[in-house]
Design a protein around this nucleic acid. Structure first.
Lengths: 203, 203
DNA sequence: AATAGAATAGACAAGTCTGTATATCAATAA
DNA sequence: TTATTGATATACAGACTTGTCTATTCTATT
């Protein structure tokens, strides 16, 4: 077996187990047994479990964003519909039987210190996905792309967590429904200015 | 020191450390040292670390829901404004300097098996909070209280996770803004039926 | 075919984890 | 006052943790 493919395989196995059982709950012995690889392969290639976690998260980031963007863009060409397609792709993910929550949310939960490299990487991933949303919103002609993207991101994160905690498979559909309503007021349609409704006096 | 107050104090300390550092990351020795209590106090009173976690989560559930409901109801009497006040209370929580994410989301992440008693308890908490949302929505005259509650719940969960992962303190304000837009189309106002917009043909 | 680099199994270190056992001490109640 | 209850400190078991080290074997390239 080639050098790089061992490294790769170790990362893949790590990703699988970290997602399935958690980061702290997955011991390196279990991990190495599952990967069928010697302990020194880990420590020669990565130097520590933390470094392996970081490598696994970097792979997941690349993998996930590539898949997600590709699927959204393949769904439709219409910018507005792409913002909704996001939630169809999300739906597909949440319903997949290996779904165990978002690797990055889980990582941030298990490594709660904001400055922890693992937590930082998780935050960076979320930033990049939100940026994708923002670009979509801008292309779709949103009056405030950043605001809309932030709101859609909340729906996305909410759906992920709800599916994970409560096992509610409809979460992405709920999110899509809500997103459709948000788009209606955020996209510069024919004179919708009047809909900026009634924030009650500051509580 | 009385029996019950020892038990109580142990639960309080456990809750604090579990929220701050995580469940698996908090060893019982650390916990007992922090509480200033002997090991047998734990095992006589609870029998296991898992049982202590469950007790801590039960306390948190009671504590949180009591606080949350009380604050929302104190904010305003208007049903519609109460649905928005939810996000002001949320804002207050997310900005508090001890905020480390939701104890229940964190628990569900660390104990990913749906049937795990800990995970189950987390899901139950979320169900109860969503039920509170649904009652508010019904009183406010929502056409589909359950749907609206589900959508607002997504915004809430999304804000919690976003504040936790990305340290984004504005998360609750974003959620409030989005919620205001959802309310506009979900509450039976003067003839707003036309706003149910344009789901694109199924992807 | 020889040699260098990398992977292997397995022992080992040093520490952590949960949980149990024991012997002592303090407070409460009959 | 005595008996009981429960908390204490401490030691211990046994499993698990990450990480190091060694001695051997495989493999890839020169």
């Amino acid at each position: 077996m080639k050098v790089s493919s061992r490294r790769d395989h170790l990362i893949d196995t790590a990703l699988k187990l970290f997602c399935r059982d958690g980061y702290r709950a997955t011991g390196i012995d279990t991990l190495l047994a599952e990967a069928g690889v010697a302990k020194m392969t880990l420590y020669n290639n990565f130097g520590s479990k933390e470094a392996l976690i970081l490598a696994a998260l970097r792979r997941r980031d690349e993998q996930f964003r590539l898949w997600f963007v590709k699927r959204v863009e393949a769904a439709t060409d219409d910018p507005r519909e792409r913002l909704l397609a996001v939630f169809d792709v999300l739906d597909e993910w949440l319903r997949s039987d290996t779904f165990r929550g978002c690797a990055f949310i889980n990582a941030a939960v298990e490594y709660p210190e904001l400055r922890d490299p693992i937590h930082t990487l998780a935050a960076e991933h979320k930033r990049l996905v939100a940026l994708f949303f923002e670009r979509l919103a801008a292309v779709a002609g949103a009056r405030e792309p950043a605001e809309l993207a932030a709101e859609l991101s909340l729906l996305k994160e909410g759906a992920i967590v709800t599916a994970q905690v409560s096992g509610r498979l409809e979460a992405a559909r709920d999110a899509r429904r809500a997103a459709a309503r948000l788009l209606a007021s955020a996209l510069a349609g024919a004179g919708r200015e009047g809909e900026e409704l009634t924030d009650p006096p500051a509580t």
